[in-house]
Design a binder for these strands. Structure first.
Lengths: 243, 243
DNA sequence: CCGGAAAACATGTATATACATAATAATCGG
DNA sequence: CCGATTATTATGTATATACATGTTTTCCGG
């Protein structure tokens, strides 16, 4: 990669070191030159090098040990993190009035499909909740949720007509792991009707399964009219500081 | 939560400022005290305050404008990190034969739309690449890419008929930040033809903009037939306080 | 030869200073 | 009163310096 001619020294050093690491020229475990040596090499002060190295360390590319030096870390698999988003906030950020309506709740023993959705091995009591989120009175997204009552028994007595199951669960059963599944589908007849769309309109479907230390907590499927809404993902893998 | 008594000054300032921002005491748009004033307030040098503010800016909590000061940014909707995926690998994991075809490349000066896609302020040379990825001979996804030649001038002489621009860039211009945008759209006539679909079929569109330390590197739009393919994102809970 | 004190060493944090850069504010000529 | 020039201001980057903090190495007494 070429470096812009007018890049700052900081950027140049950062780029150089990063290239060595990312390219694999410096394998994990490799010790970087000492700060003073790099400073001499670039003809700058140790402070400048120090700031670069601090940034690399924050980014997780290197690990620093006093007296020993700085070392390239094992590349951690690039895991994708999608933060659980709150629809109310999402709507609020659009400066639209938020409202919410419970459609139906059903308690039953997990059937095959329920077990697939939750990733359950055996049957067990589950609660199905269907509800709709509205923005400025219009359908914003449909929520189809399955809650594992073995893990969250209290959900039986929750009043989901006044609070959406998402926020309710977030308070009571914080998740420790989750998996997302995003796809585009054409709306079927029922979906189109609920979201007030023409059939076959492209919709964005976000499915999320969450676990806590006990087991699978919930599976939820959000269906958004795809052309109006979107998911934004900000990235911060390498040398930038995570939020 | 109390702040450790032996926290460094840097940490203390960071914590204080962060608290004001996340608590909402300083609303988005609020101007932070000037560096010199904060320095006076904490009885430290401007450099120390500057480092903290630089960090906050990198974290996206504040925006800094010369002469004007530093301002709390609008809280961007819940961010998410999606893995940069390699289509060849994706296809291979389906145990399908992968192939690739270059459709067209165009070099030009960035027009308004190009600048929007890349997030460029001024015009500059860009390279547009359209190509298609095939799985077992069938269209798998269409790639529409824009490369910032100011940052990656070598791309001019790359032969994208033999290597896809994604892998090529990954080697030469490692990204340090990226932003994703996922939405569902119905295929238009051209898209339907290229992907061998019926018009209006729901498609998953993934847009990605990547930066390195120098500037915007590339913008790419992948269009997948949405019903056949999907994006999976694995999660980790955000360890509340990014530091 | 062992254990512990001391020295050497690399990084961590903070300071004061200097000059560059970009944006705004003030000024002045026409 | 407009518009171009200049000054001011806040941040951006870099320097040299100082001392603190953990580690590792060295060395020395027993």
């Amino acid at each position: 990669m070429d470096i812009a001619r007018d890049a700052t020294l900081h950027q140049r050093i950062l780029n150089d070191l990063e290239s060595q690491i990312v390219s694999g020229a410096w394998a994990p475990g490799h010790r970087l030159p000492f700060e003073v040596d790099l400073a001499k090499q670039y003809g700058c002060s140790r402070m400048t090098v120090n700031k670069v190295m601090t940034q690399l360390a924050k980014a997780g590319l290197i690990e620093r040990r006093k007296k020993s030096g700085s070392f390239v870390t094992q590349p951690q698999a690039q895991s994708a993190v999608l933060e659980i988003h709150d629809i109310k906030t999402e709507v609020a950020s659009l400066k639209l009035a938020y409202s919410y309506a419970l459609l139906v709740t059903t308690e039953r023993d997990a059937d095959i499909e329920d077990r697939r959705r939750l990733g359950l091995e055996k049957a067990g009591p589950v609660l199905e909740v269907r509800c709709i989120h509205l923005a400025a009175g219009d359908p914003f997204c449909l929520e189809e949720r399955l809650i594992n009552l073995d893990v969250v028994p209290d959900a039986r007595h929750a009043d989901f007509s006044t609070i959406a199951p998402g926020p309710w669960l977030l308070e009571r059963a914080p998740w420790t792991a989750a998996q997302h599944n995003i796809q585009a589908v054409g709306a079927d007849r029922d979906m189109a009707k609920l979201l007030k769309l023409k059939p076959e309109t492209a919709c964005l479907v976000i499915e999320r399964r969450t676990w806590n230390t006990i087991g699978p907590v919930t599976h939820v499927r959000f269906t958004y009219p795809g052309t109006r809404h979107r998911v934004v993902a900000d990235f911060q893998p390498s040398s930038s500081q995570p939020r």
